[in-house]
Amino acid sequence: MSDIQAYGLWPLVIINSLIIIIFAFSFTRPKTSRDWRSFGGFAAFIIALFTEMYGFPLTIYLLSGWLASRYPEIDLLSHDAGHLSYTLLGLSGDPHLGLLHLVSSIFILGGLFLLTTSWKALYTAQKNHALATTGPYAYVRHPQYDAFTLIMIGFLIQWPTILTLIMFPILVWMYKRLARSEEKEVLAEFPEEYSSYMAKVPGFIPRLG
């Protein structure tokens, strides 16, 4: 890819952002202000990511002096140079065919799959006015937040930027607070049943074995 084609591709920024955001929206269906906060934070992460991936490489620009001195052979304005994790580890070849890209794709696809299966279980439970305890909810209490986190980790492995690295821990912290707020509401509605469920099923990290 030539330098001219590497960045400034704003239609790609818009199209790629919309694909991920619309997909996530279709399986989260935010209703409350809390739902919109969690979804909005994820959407902001995705927009920031693709803006640097195809629009303007802010991270490359800010680190250009250090990168140019440490990796003089690399064309910093090329698309491949944006795969900073690949560059910093001293890997060679096409980053799209490397192990890091494969691992990132597993995280992203796994997160998208978890998001869809979680929504199906939650939708069925809400339709029956019951607790969601099947599917991914049998292993963790907040699989949808786990799904958002997995997708973000996958993109950070593939295309780390200063802004998304700052946003990631803030969003994880926000999801944890939102999850605690949700649990208080569900406990008020299903006190005994949800207390028993909480005692058996962890919040975010499934138990092994």
Rank of each mutant, 00 (worst) to 15 (best):
I162C: 05
L131P: 14
W173F: 11
Q144A: 10
I153Q: 05
P136H: 03
W159M: 15
P169I: 11
I157G: 01
W173T: 14
Y145M: 09
I153C: 09
Y139M: 03
T133G: 06
N128E: 12
T134Y: 02
R177G: 05
F155S: 01
Y175Q: 15
T134G: 06
Y175N: 10
I162L: 13
M152S: 07
H142G: 05
M174H: 11
W173R: 14
A179N: 10
L165Y: 12
Y175P: 10
L150H: 13
H142P: 09
I157K: 02
R177M: 08
P143A: 13
I162V: 12
L171C: 04
A138Y: 11
G154F: 04
Y175C: 13
T134E: 10
R180N: 13
L165T: 15
A179P: 15
Q144P: 04
T133R: 15
T161D: 03
T164I: 07
T134H: 07
W159D: 09
H129Q: 08
Q144S: 11
W173Y: 12
L156Y: 05
P160F: 05
L171N: 03
G135A: 01
T134L: 08
A179D: 12
F148Q: 10
W173H: 11
M174F: 09
I151V: 12
R180H: 15
W159K: 08
M152T: 09
D146F: 14
N128G: 14
D146Y: 03
Y145Q: 12
F148D: 10
W159G: 07
T161V: 06
Q144Y: 07
Y137Q: 02
Y137R: 01
G154T: 04
I153W: 06
M174R: 09
P136I: 03
L165F: 14
R141W: 05
L150I: 14
M167S: 00
H129V: 12
L156D: 04
R141G: 04
I157N: 01
V140S: 03
M167A: 02
R177W: 09
M167V: 00
L156C: 05
A130W: 14
I170F: 15
R177I: 09
L150Q: 13
P169V: 08
M167E: 02
F168D: 10
V140F: 02
P136A: 04
P143N: 13
R180Q: 12
G154D: 03
T133C: 14
